[in-house]
Design a protein around this nucleic acid. Structure first.
Lengths: 220, 220
DNA sequence: CTGTATCCTACCCGAACGGATAGGCACCGC
DNA sequence: GCGGTGCCTATCCGTTCGGGTAGGATACAG
């Protein structure tokens, strides 16, 4: 749909940091361009799909930083991040997302992302973060990482014991009781007990409901 | 469904159009402010949660247009839209969203929203849309409404038949095969068959995995 | 020391699930 | 017509699940 590419070749400053912005939200691309180029030290190129970003890099374009939207066409979650990182080990790649949670942010950072930018950031914070990352640092908003931490220990999780939480995590991964028992080094009847009791605590009547409730609550 | 409301309070001479923007994405709020006020004919007020927007309206502030983010804190999907509409029948309310699909857009418009703005819009299109809506028209991007028809069913859902999708939805609700059979007016063995075949199609090995995969894919 | 809470283990049983196989029916394109 | 596809139904079998009950180990507080 959005095949047009807004390439802005600003060569006013040979020392400018080149930033590639890949996001299917036109509005956000406009904003980032305005904010970054307003700083005078950035040169931005924007595309609307992962494929376009990939093509630019394959064609040999160099960027100090690549910003990838987590839920853009072709991105496929963290798959896109890994592929972009593989394209060039030197290229710094960051994830930007409006919906992703702490879990995904941590996975992205663990996979080698230069940073994670929630769209709740203000323009000013974002410019700082981009400069920070372009200089080789790893960035993630601390309040975001923390806020999710307490949100993770929500009222639902409070009522569960440590073991029950471990078992519940197994349920969300679609494991059988036997698999959970093996992974936690327990006997299967024990797992069944934990499963049964956590059903009562969270109001589930089978493992699928329990898994969905856990997901809805933002656990795991 | 063409709700052509009369234009009240068209303030073409007494002053700028007042627009309330409620979105938890700081970046987006900054952008909208810049773009709208840059037009010289808009006065914007921005808040980050539904509760703040509600308070402003309860306190008596008047706006020609209220923009509500579909997935902001307190919004609760279309609930927030309905509550905001109830607050004042004259107030025009539009939904803005980065993730919602055609289905939700249509529901919003049917519920009386002044418009639906995907965040894939460019700044220019958005200014036009806001002006359009503030003048009493109902707006929705045609290409979005059409494009979603082919793209709404994501790659995962493409491979499933209608029945299998219905069964899969039952799985995500934690229903047993028997319950699904009753709800869809089928025999239980039939449901079991659909369950089994959709396992193969989406790569699940039990109902919990199937439910999680469906959720991850954004279905239901 | 005794009561209490949490966790681990174990057994039984009826119900549901996962997998394989197979026949019937309606529709559509060749 | 014929084959292909999607959908509905059915039976069989072994495994897993959900629920109940019960006992033992550890730790901690009164």
């Amino acid at each position: 749909m959005n095949v047009q590419r807004d390439v802005q070749a600003m060569q006013k400053n040979s020392g400018a940091m080149r930033v590639l912005i890949a996001d299917d939200h036109d509005l956000l691309r406009d904003t980032l361009e305005v904010f970054l180029e307003g700083e005078g030290n950035f040169e931005t190129v924007t595309v609307a799909t992962f494929a376009e970003a990939e093509n630019l890099c394959l064609r040999g374009d160099r960027f100090d930083l690549v910003l990838l939207d987590y839920s853009m066409p072709g991105m496929n979650g963290l798959e896109g991040l890994k592929r972009m990182l593989d394209l060039n080990g030197e290229r710094r790649v960051a994830i930007i997302s409006g919906t992703a949670n702490r879990e995904i942010a941590e996975q992205a950072l663990a996979a080698g992302a230069a940073g994670f930018l929630p769209k709740t950031l203000s323009g000013k914070s974002l410019v700082n973060a981009v400069r920070f990352m372009a200089m080789g640092e790893q960035y993630a908003p601390l309040d975001f990482m923390r806020a999710e931490d307490e949100a993770a220990s929500n009222p639902l999780a409070e009522r569960l014991s440590r073991r029950e939480l471990e078992v519940l995590e197994g349920l969300t991964l679609g494991k059988s009781n036997k698999e959970i028992a093996r992974d936690l080094d327990l006997r299967e009847p024990t797992v069944k007990l934990h499963v049964k009791t956590l059903y009562r605590k969270i109001g589930a009547s089978n493992r699928t409901q329990a898994a969905m409730i856990a997901k809805e609550a933002g656990l795991f």
